[in-house]
Structures are given as C-alpha cells and as structure tokens.
Computed example of a mutant assay.
Amino acid sequence: MKKTIIFLSLVAFTAVSFSQKKRTTTSATINFDATTTLDALPKAENKTAVASLNTKSGEIAFEAIVKSFSFSNPKMQEHFNGAMWMDSDKFAKATFKGKITNLSKVNFKTDGTYRATVEGNLTMHGVTKPVTTTASVVVSGKTITTTSDFSVKVADYGINGPAIGAGKVSTDPKISVVAAFK
C-alpha cells in the first residue's frame, strides 16, 4: 500500500511537472506596416513565424524568416529583401527573445484577457536592440493567444534604403504579432 501511494504521488508530480509549461506554434503571424502619406503599399505579412511561450517562467520567443514576408507588390518584396533594406540573403531571420515581466498578472489556467508587459531583445538586420511593449494574452480553454503591436526605428537596425529617405517608407514601421499557442 505504501509503495502504491508513493508511486501514485510520483506519477501525479511528474504529470504536474510536465504539464504544458512550454507552448509552441509554427504559424504565428507578423504584420509589417511602413506606409506613409506618399505610399500606401509598404505592407507585408508573414504567416509562418515560429514562437514559444513558457507559461511558468514567462519566457517568450519569436523567429521569422525575412523572405517569408509577403507584399502585394512583387517589386516592393524584392526591394524589402534587397541589400539596401533587409538584406535577407545575409540576414535571413528576425528574432525576438524576451519575458513577460508582470507574469503574476497573467493566469494561464483561467479563461480571460490579460495585459502583459514584455521586455526583450529584437534582432534584425544583424543588430540587436532592447524592446519593451505591452501584449494582450487571451486564455480560452486550452488555447493561449498573444497579440502585440509596437514600432521600431529602422535606423536603429542599420536600415536606410533610398525609399526611406524619399519618404515612401516609414522610418518607424508598425509591427503586429499574433500567436495562438495550443
């Protein structure tokens, strides 16, 4: 009897230890909006970003292949991936690694919408810079959906193509990230 209780306790402890601490997805969406009053076309979407979320530690990470951003205008996509902009042959990925800093305000076990503060490092075009933003965390059943909107200054990442100088591309494009973790 004593061995059975110890065995059942061990099984329960193992189940709790391995229960859904880390969630991942391979279909996070990142939207890029660099429109200006001179040009409404610099918009792109990447639906193949990968992401992970550790519900115990609050660690969160995203990775996107730069060439997977899709523009409505093929010429704009060519410029975006070219040496004067993202130089995606040399800098193939953009990454974010960070943490939810107010993790105690997010209850991953109870359905609801929570406001999270996220701090971390964004790396693109070979440059890493700190980013702080807010995110919405929606818990619904077994799905956790995170959404965040923020802007970056392209000059901070060494991006300075002629279209930026001409005012056709925003100097601080808006980035939107959505990931559903199941």
Rank of each mutant, 00 (worst) to 15 (best):
G158F: 05
V66S: 05
T110S: 08
P42K: 10
I30S: 09
G58E: 07
K97V: 04
E63I: 07
P42Q: 01
A40K: 14
I100T: 04
G141F: 09
V152S: 02
T110V: 12
A34I: 09
G126N: 00
M124L: 15
T110K: 09
L8V: 07
K21Q: 10
K47H: 11
D111L: 00
I30V: 15
M84E: 14
M84W: 03
I144Q: 14
T146V: 14
V137I: 15
T37D: 15
K99W: 03
T55G: 01
I144S: 04
N46L: 11
K3D: 10
T171W: 01
E59F: 02
A155W: 05
A180E: 12
K47I: 10
S70D: 14
A64M: 08
N54P: 08
M76V: 08
S27A: 14
I65V: 15
F32R: 09
F69G: 03
A34D: 05
V11A: 11
V169L: 12
L38W: 02
L41M: 07
F62N: 12
M86W: 11
G98W: 01
V169G: 08
H79M: 05
E45P: 09
A166C: 06
N31M: 06
A179D: 03
A51F: 03
N107H: 05
S104D: 14
G141R: 03
A49L: 06
R115F: 04
F181D: 08
G141A: 10
G165C: 07
K129C: 00
F108D: 00
A155T: 12
I164W: 11
A155R: 03
S68D: 15
S27V: 08
V127E: 13
S57A: 03
T36K: 07
A135L: 02
F181H: 13
S72L: 15
A155N: 12
A116W: 04
A180H: 12
G120C: 10
Y157A: 04
T36L: 04
G126P: 02
F108M: 03
G120I: 04
L53S: 02
S27D: 10
T171L: 10
L41E: 15
A163Y: 14
F91G: 02
A166F: 00
K99S: 15
T48H: 13
A166M: 11
M84F: 09
T132A: 14
L38I: 07
N121V: 08
T147F: 06
V152W: 09
G141P: 00
E119K: 13
F71Q: 10
